[in-house]
């Protein structure tokens, strides 16, 4: 086991989800979710499509509403109060499967938009921060280009930098490499590993099991809207306890 996964995880609670249930109309999409995430933890969520894993992390930053149960992020209860939602969204960053960069703005403007308009950071300062994070994801020379001029892997790295510019304490990833060509997956995963090594709290929905083995403290398996199994990576992959987990792993790891 490498050092990353052996890092001591703190006692501080970053995200606390208790008895959370969500319905789409009458369809019960998330059932009795209990999950506590500690600061500095890296959690990988996997499962078949339709299992509710994306819905779960989208509930955490209020992109989706839950009907029952409670979600507390960094001590703030997630309710319909806009002030709470604003506070939570500035602490939580999110990366999407389809990047969702703003095509009419340059890369630099993509990164400085939120700091200027939400945090009221002066423009010079916001640009300096943006360049710092663009260097971190290794594409500072693309700052004045437009998203349409970049490759998929570069766009996703810009998306990560854009979220980091708001200095979040928690990062959510919704299948960040699923829309990428194979040769670009590595550059994005390397960026995410670097983030993890610096101690960022991460929840990652992904199919990249190698990444899970290398970086995750916990792997969670979801099916039909509920958490079926969670364990440390080694135990999870080598010794899955539930039948459904075994079936899923045999399909994913088989080829």
């Amino acid at each position: 086991m490498n050092d990353t996964a052996a890092m001591k995880v703190s006692d501080e609670v970053a995200i606390d989800i208790q008895a959370m249930n969500k319905w789409y109309g009458t369809f019960h999409v998330l059932r009795d979710i209990d999950l506590t995430v500690y600061r500095g933890e890296r959690i990988v969520i996997c499962g078949p499509s339709g299992s509710g894993k994306s819905t779960l992390i989208r509930c955490i930053n209020a992109l989706e509403e839950h009907q029952q149960g409670s979600i507390t992020v960094d001590g703030t209860l997630l309710s319909s109060d806009l002030k709470n939602i604003d506070t939570i969204r500035s602490e939580v960053g999110m990366c999407f499967q389809h990047f969702n960069l703003f095509p009419h703005l340059t890369i630099l403007e993509n990164c400085t938009l939120a700091p200027i308009w939400v945090r009221k950071t002066p423009k010079k300062e916001a640009e300096a921060t943006a360049m710092h994070f663009l260097e971190k994801v290794k594409i500072p020379d693309q700052a004045l280009k437009y998203p349409g001029q970049l490759s998929g892997g570069q766009q996703q790295r810009v998306a990560i930098a854009r979220s980091l510019c708001m200095k979040p304490r928690i990062m959510l990833f919704d299948e960040p490499t699923s829309a990428l060509d194979p040769e670009m997956i590595k550059e994005v995963l390397d960026t995410m590993i670097e983030l993890a090594e610096e101690g960022m709290t991460m929840l990652c929905v992904t199919h990249e099991m190698g990444f899970a083995r290398q970086v995750a403290n916990r792997v969670i398996f979801m099916d039909a809207g509920q958490i079926v199994e969670q364990n440390e990576p080694e135990e999870f992959f080598n010794n899955p306890k539930s039948e459904r987990t075994q079936l899923f792993l045999s399909q994913i790891l088989g080829h």
Binding site: A6, D11, H28, R31, E41, R218, E232, K241, S242
Partner: peptide, 20 residues
């Protein structure tokens, strides 16, 4: 690893039925 005792090794054996 130093993961917290309460978060480790959970397995669900009975499925939660869908509720209205």
């Amino acid at each position: 690893s130093d993961t917290h005792a309460q978060t480790v090794a959970f397995v669900r054996h009975t499925e939660i039925p869908p509720a209205p």
